[in-house]
Amino acid sequence: MQRVNMIMAESPGLITICLLGYLLSAECTVFLDHENANKILNRPKRYNSGKLEEFVQGNLERECMEEKCSFEEAREVFENTERTTEFWKQYVDGDQCESNPCLNGGSCKDDINSYECWCPFGFEGKNCELDVTCNIKNGRCEQFCKNSADNKVVCSCTEGYRLAENQKSCEPAVPFPCGRVSVSQTSKLTRAETVFPDVDYVNSTEAETILDNITQSTQSFNDFTRVVGGEDAKPGQFPWQVVLNGKVDAFCGGSIVNEKWIVTAAHCVETGVKITVVAGEHNIEETEHTEQKRNVIRIIPHHNYNAAINKYNHDIALLELDEPLVLNSYVTPICIADKEYTNIFLKFGSGYVSGWGRVFHKGRSALVLQYLRVPLVDRATCLRSTKFTIYNNMFCAGFHEGGRDSCQGDSGGPHVTEVEGTSFLTGIISWGEECAMKGKYGIYTKVSRYVNWIKEKTKLT
């Protein structure tokens, strides 16, 4: 034993070699072989497995989906700052455009905790909710729209109204504003409101030439003092309507412009014939205590009207009353817009006519005020429907199939267009061939041609 100890002390290297040989010859039971080890760690190889990531292109799944990435790591994937920024906006807080917040056709661009709407022409605001041009839906104005110097929408209202708090709607500024039905039992019968379409306001006024200088022999019209197929109006439903009495009662109609003036057809009036105007009328054979009678003290036909040349060209006249009318729910003026808007309103496509005229061709006159909704007829169809001249200051309205029309005794009465609950004068009943005849239409004086003249002559002093 002493000898062994001496050998170990003198030859430590020998001992180490012996131990190493023993270990190498022993069977290893701690580690699995290569094949079995792979069965336990069965993990798919990654895209760049075996390579240094710093030297390969980034992978979106590896960089940002398996674990949260930084902007720089995302930049490695896209290799483009702009594309990385677009991805980053949604990656950080989701897609803010998912709810489609942009209105009126706006395009949404996502941002971090926010979004941006790219608005089409005519709109602005956070969600493109603000109209900035009158060309689109009248700028959301209830009545009139004008573009300011910086191309912003400025709404306005006709006389007797003021802008509401929203700067879009119009509200009454006087007790009985024009064009409004205020009798409670008839307010439910107000005709369907007309909503502004998209309009090209630059070209809204037709490029028409008034044929002022045409000389033409007097034409022989049949029954051209021209509501057939209409309905009984309720008291106060058309408070701007008046009836004219002269040699015979209810020979023509008219509309209240203001307390002192009536507008009617020029062919209705004769110099030297006494005319009485009755406002607030409903049943011409009954006294309903809503009527107001006034005498006409002055007749002003349009300066281009000449019955000797043509009885229905420039067929418009103004009547001055001896005493002002007292405005109330049964006696209310009709609204008159400017030339541009009167023309736009007419193009809405349908209007209402009213009167006490004959209820059928050569038949009896109506006792109760009649009204009828009539569609506008395109000019080409209008011209083809008659052998008589249709001037540019006239328009056609009615039904091709016949059966409904204005008729004798309705002449001078109103053709009105309702705009968001307020009625505007767009025409004056003038003439036609018979009444409600198939293929024939009622012919009306186009008020847009005469609004400046009306307003100039009827100013209240």
Rank of each mutant, 00 (worst) to 15 (best):
T133L: 04
S25R: 06
D111W: 05
H314I: 01
L376R: 05
L60R: 15
N127Q: 10
Y115A: 01
K440S: 10
L163D: 00
D198K: 09
G409Y: 12
T225W: 11
E86D: 14
D95T: 06
T426D: 00
S217D: 12
Y391D: 12
D33F: 05
E270H: 07
P197C: 04
D111F: 08
L325P: 00
G160H: 04
W431A: 07
S423A: 11
L211R: 06
G106F: 00
N283R: 10
V273K: 13
G351I: 02
P414E: 03
L41F: 09
S49H: 12
V353R: 08
C97E: 01
A366W: 08
T186S: 05
S350Y: 07
C435Y: 03
F348P: 01
L367H: 13
T85M: 06
Q167M: 14
R358F: 08
E72M: 15
K438V: 09
T264E: 01
V377K: 04
I275G: 03
K152W: 05
S184P: 09
G230H: 12
E35L: 06
L32P: 06
I214F: 07
N5K: 14
A279H: 00
K438Y: 06
G439R: 10
A233T: 08
E67C: 04
K51Q: 15
R404W: 14
E281V: 14
V242R: 00
G125W: 00
R180K: 12
H289M: 10
N42Y: 08
K137C: 03
T158Q: 10
G427S: 00
S156F: 13
L14K: 03
Y201P: 10
V296G: 02
N138A: 04
R191G: 12
A149S: 10
N100E: 08
K188F: 10
A337Y: 00
K459A: 07
V277W: 01
G413T: 07
K362H: 11
A337L: 01
C117S: 01
C69I: 03
V227D: 12
F348N: 14
T417P: 00
S70N: 15
K89A: 10
V174T: 10
E323S: 13
G413A: 13
Q96F: 05
F123K: 07
F251A: 08
D232R: 13
E116I: 05
E116P: 02
L372N: 12
K438M: 08
N38Q: 15
T342L: 04
G13T: 13
E418Y: 13
K126V: 08
V353I: 14
D111E: 06
E259D: 06
S187T: 12
L376G: 02
R364F: 07
D150G: 10
V242M: 00
N138Y: 04
L367W: 13
C119G: 01
P375Q: 10
L376F: 10
E165C: 04
S350A: 12
G355F: 14
E270F: 08
W261C: 02
P333S: 05
C119H: 00
K68C: 04
T445A: 05
F144D: 00
S11Q: 07
D200S: 11
Q90L: 08
I443L: 12
L460T: 06
D33A: 12
Y161Q: 02
S107L: 05
G409P: 10
N343Q: 09
